[in-house]
Design a protein around this nucleic acid. Structure first.
Ligand SMILES: [Zn+2]
Ligand SMILES: [Zn+2]
Ligand SMILES: [Zn+2]
Ligand SMILES: [Zn+2]
Lengths: 131, 131
DNA sequence: CAATTGATGTAATAACATTACATTCACATT
DNA sequence: AATGTGAATGTAATGTTATTACATCAATTG
């Protein structure tokens, strides 16, 4: 998936997220796109659904917000697991992968015959700059 | 914190969660407590805040719902980290601790001078019984 | 040119959570 | 017993996040 093949709405939403320094809620994305003709939440949610599907965007479950993927070309999407630190002061989000954690969680699930779907790992706290 | 010292509202909310076989939203708790005099969401949210503080209840961020702690006497609350599997079919929640994962996340945070607050680990999927 | 499929526009509503303010209760101090 | 204090409660209103329903438009294809 390249950013080329996005539709107009998808491209606009992705662009807003890419240039934001911190996670944005669907409604704040909507506000930023009023001048581009956005009128309703659904326009944002539909675009976000696709961007999530393409692996260009992540949803942060613990704060109901969205961020552009930090490295969409590395198959971030293909990895089952992406973890995040989220600074509660400045909103800075850092995205990382950890195979040991991934294996450990896989092992736990396998031991219990639990079929793993989407996994969320989010650390909220204070980044170095805000400490 | 014993279940003795809970206030009436806290006790009612805890009781509902304890007897539910799956996570409940704040509003479904409210519905179950109408007959006990509950009228407004805030009555539920206030009780939940305290129960979370006491470590008797966990919030599942990825599904906006709450569960009673599976082992409140083991200092679950004291541990920094509790992880969950959540069956999307039947709602079964399993709670577990993993020191290796905890250490790994701590290490990652420390390396980046990120001061860790609340950490969320939730695996959504399908439990053995629902497979 | 249908027919199909994916995307869009719009309104309405549902689901989740907080703010504000008045009141009551538990309990310690006088 | 009266008073003062902080925690808990009752209630209404509002704010925030997400989905349902339905009509329309655009690209693709047989
Ligand atoms: Zn990513
Ligand atoms: Zn920060
Ligand atoms: Zn627990
Ligand atoms: Zn199940």
């Amino acid at each position: 998936m390249t950013t080329q093949s996005l539709t107009r709405n998808q491209g606009l939403v992705f662009d807003v997220l890419s240039h934001a320094g911190s996670p944005l809620s669907a409604y704040s994305i909507l506000d930023k796109l009023r001048d581009d003709g956005f009128r309703a939440p659904l326009q944002v949610y539909r675009a976000l659904d696709k961007l999530l599907e393409f692996g260009l965007v992540h949803r942060l479950e613990s704060i109901n917000a969205f961020v552009a993927c930090a490295h969409p070309d590395e198959g971030c999407h293909a990895h089952g697991l992406t973890a995040f630190t989220i600074c509660e002061t400045c909103g800075q989000v850092t995205e990382f992968h950890d195979h040991m954690i991934e294996d450990r969680l896989k092992g736990f699930a396998k031991d219990r015959n639990f079929k793993t779907g989407k996994t969320t790992i989010e650390i909220r706290g204070t980044c170095a700059g805000c400490a």
